[in-house]
């Protein structure tokens, strides 16, 4: 009898979950395998017309749209989880040591390193970065438990923080496109469009790819997603075309 109640409880829980709703699903148009180990984030530079991919394994690579490596840093003792560019520098964050590296976009030489302390989990540090063009500040976001959005000035001094833990289990990437901030949740596989003034969610889409850790948009507004575990670069149409 006890076993019967136990089984019934299991079934009720399972069925309630099977019918949960998901946001609109995006389908990848294509993908390529990357020659960058553990690709954790990607950004597009309108200046060099190329892409920069950060790697958990300690590389920063410049690639073309097809993922072909144009140049790459030597192996570094770093756990890069986020990358962004403003044209002047390519910035990459070492999640473990909380260091922001300033790379020369032409040579990939290190110009500066700035430490941005955060005492949360060693592997739950800064996972996403993007420049907020509306508020003229950098945004650094911690991965999870908790998901905190920090605003920082151009020297990466923290000036404000906002708790985003309620919108997703984690945040793995951020980018700027079409006057909005776009965030990616790796564990939920959800892409968010965020209001850059209020940080309120304005749209979300389900991306059925494993371990999506980086996002950017190309010149034509197509979405590019790097996947760490699969070591792939996926291509999607612009989410708002759906």
């Amino acid at each position: 009898m006890r076993l019967f109640f136990f089984a019934t409880a299991l079934s009720v829980c399972a069925v309630s979950g099977l019918f949960a709703q998901k946001p609109t699903q995006l389908k990848p148009v294509s993908f390529v395998s990357l020659n960058v180990p553990e690709p954790s984030d990607i950004c597009y530079s309108a200046v060099t017309k190329s892409y920069f991919i950060a790697s958990d394994s300690g590389y920063l690579s410049e690639t073309d749209r097809d993922g072909k490596v144009l140049q790459q840093t030597p192996l570094m003792v770093s756990d890069f989880e986020a990358v962004a560019t403003d044209g002047e520098f390519v910035y990459a964050i070492d999640e473990t040591r909380r260091d922001v590296y300033f790379f020369n976009p032409k040579t990939l030489a290190i110009e500066r390193v700035v430490n941005v302390p955060f005492s949360g989990g060693r592997n739950k540090g800064y996972e996403a970065m993007v420049y907020n063009k509306v508020k003229n500040c950098w945004i650094l976001i911690t991965e999870r438990e908790p998901v905190i959005l920090f605003e920082a000035d151009k020297e990466f001094r923290i000036t404000n923080k906002v708790d985003l833990s309620k919108i997703a289990t984690d945040i793995s990437a951020a980018t700027w496109y079409n006057d909005a901030i776009w965030l990616m949740s790796d564990m939920d596989m959800i892409l968010f469009k965020i209001n850059p003034k209020t940080y309120a969610v304005e749209g979300k889409w389900y991306l059925p790819v494993l371990n999506p850790e980086g996002i950017t948009f190309d010149e034509n507004g197509n979405l590019l997603v790097t996947c760490d575990d699969m070591q792939r670069l996926y291509y999607f149409e612009n989410p708002e075309k759906k």
């Binding site: 473990t96 040591r97 909380r98 260091d99 430490n115 302390p117 955060f118 005492s119 949360g120 989990g121 060693r122 739950k124 540090g125 438990e145 908790p146």
Partner: peptide, 17 residues
């Protein structure tokens, strides 16, 4: 401080969690 979040200390070379 440790409620739902571990502590990480770093001196730039040594990271302790």
């Amino acid at each position: 401080a440790t409620s739902f979040a571990q502590l990480t200390l770093s001196n730039g070379h040594h990271v302790l969690e």
